[in-house]
Amino acid sequence: MVTTMLAARVSPGRVGAVLGRNVAALRTGPSYWLVLLSGFFEPVLYLLSIGVGVGALVGGLELPGGGVVDYAVFVAPAMLAVSAMSGALSETTFNFFFKMKYSKTFEAVLATPVRPLEIALGELSWALVRSSLYTGAFLVVMVALGLTSPVGALAAFPAALLVGVAFGGVGMAISTLMRGWQDFDLLTTGQFALFLFSGTFSPVRDYPAVMEAVVAVTPLFHAVELVRGLAVGQPGWGLLGHAAYLVVMAVAGLVFAARRIQRTLCV
């Protein structure tokens, strides 16, 4: 159903126009570059402080697929997934919400042939651009520090893109439900909880059983597992399950966001 909907209604040109608007906004607003830059440094700082710093105290860590790696090698792919997540989320939450609710940008766009789903796709593409800038740069850092092989980096990059799309879709969906800026505190808290407890800093199998079960349904866990499996060079069929989770997340978020744009702005 979704594919027919996509095929019948989506014009690549119009999705491109929505994406192009964001590129144009980038040229005009210099402050945006600072925001962009800070988003890249955050996971790098965590990698250095915890992965490398705390890692010196921890020593080696056994991977589920066998083999012992440095703690930093274990943490780095998780930080990669986190940077993909935060890149996509910052674009699809704060910026998306502002365009939808305050600057009435989407309202103006909806007076043209562009449809709600095309807005959502255009915004998601832009979020993906931002997310991939972060993850691309982060992978360069990882290879430079010897935390993954170039082959591992090439394999992890598309996975990181998928993580960006998944969180971008859900970010838009959440934004359409936001009542005001105060709701973003909740989002930030949720995002931080995911950051801490998604098998990022310690293997999930070391968590209490209940918590392990809870974590297994949260999104960043699947993102981390997928990216880590590829970055450390231990691909397996299990990764497909994680990838499928992220695909469902992306599509559901996208369709929900498009519906909400329609319901809220086309009344």
């Binding site: 929505v18 144009a24 906004a25 005009t28 043209t112």
Partner: peptide
């Protein structure tokens, strides 16, 4: 009724960007 010009774009870009929505 209420202006919904794009605050992130210049005057000129408001027009060029909008034109692109129309293909």
């Amino acid at each position: 009724q209420l202006d919904n010009l794009d605050p992130d774009l210049s005057v000129r870009e408001n027009l060029t960007t909008y034109a692109r929505y129309f293909g």
